[in-house]
Design a protein around this nucleic acid. Sequence first.
DNA 1: AGTAGCACCTGATTGC
DNA 2: TGCAATCAGGTGCTAC
Length: 301
Amino acid sequence: MPELPEVETVRQGLEPFVRGAMVANVSVFRASAVRLLPGGEREFESHVRGAVLEGAVRRGKFLWMPLGGGTDYALSAHLGMSGQFRVHQGPWRDAPQPHPHCRVRLSLEREGEQFTLDFLDQRTFGYLHAEKLIPTPDGLPGGRGSELASVPLSVAHIGRDALDPAWEAGEASAVWRKGTRAIKQVLLDQTKVSGIGNIYADEALWHARIHPQQPAHTVSRPAGVRLFKAVRAVMESALAQGGTSFDALYVNVNGESGYFARDLVAYGRAGTPCGRCGTAIVRQAIGGRSTHWCPRCQRKR
DNA sequence: AGTAGCACCTGATTGC
DNA sequence: TGCAATCAGGTGCTAC
């Protein structure tokens, strides 16, 4: 469930804790949490132990913390479906017993002050990674939270962030209005635009009054611009409320839920009246993902 | 090149 | 009551 607003909430929560903090110890409780590294947990630990975290950066749903000390590496993370970072302040010896879903625990230290950062992930689609930072091809900053024009290797193919302030509506929507796929599938394609997941795709399409199944290349230019603006508005509003929480699977670094679920108008509302016209919201799989829309307000052209 | 489909994994929910 | 099947989520890989 973590999409852009949730991941950004986590990034903002992480930032003040990790900036300038040294990783004194690393415990990997589940090796597959670092599965993208050929050297496994040993490789992960060798890069991360002793390193100083320089901040928290995000592009789309990808997070990373550049490692200081003249290296060009970062501790990168993807929350997958259920990943969480949780901070415990205070001496390491007072940290709670790791939760059963805790995959990795980092013991951090800054100016003599100790705290603990846990990576939890019930469904294990998420991961932590230690990887090289490479220059962005366009020379623009790699993500929110840093002016550095670099991204981790695994983020190199990821498209621009949906809330990238330097991305204009015409330019973005031109990228989306291509191909034969349903427009919803394009919104979910992280190489075309990053940060949109199943929830906010449905919400944005409802606000823009576009049928999720409409082939991308048939979306008009004004509709494309409308969609871009809807994506921004929905995500900014969700971010302001700390994201969307249905259950305990998404919480911030302090374990608190977000409040945007009560503002959802399409996602998860099958059978309930559309907030604009009263017609029942329908639900059907598109590209294998459950999709919700108003059959009256959102017509295929 | 662009698109489609499946594997990855766990826990909650539904169906028999 | 118990067990099995289904579903949900995002991404990366393979195959067309």
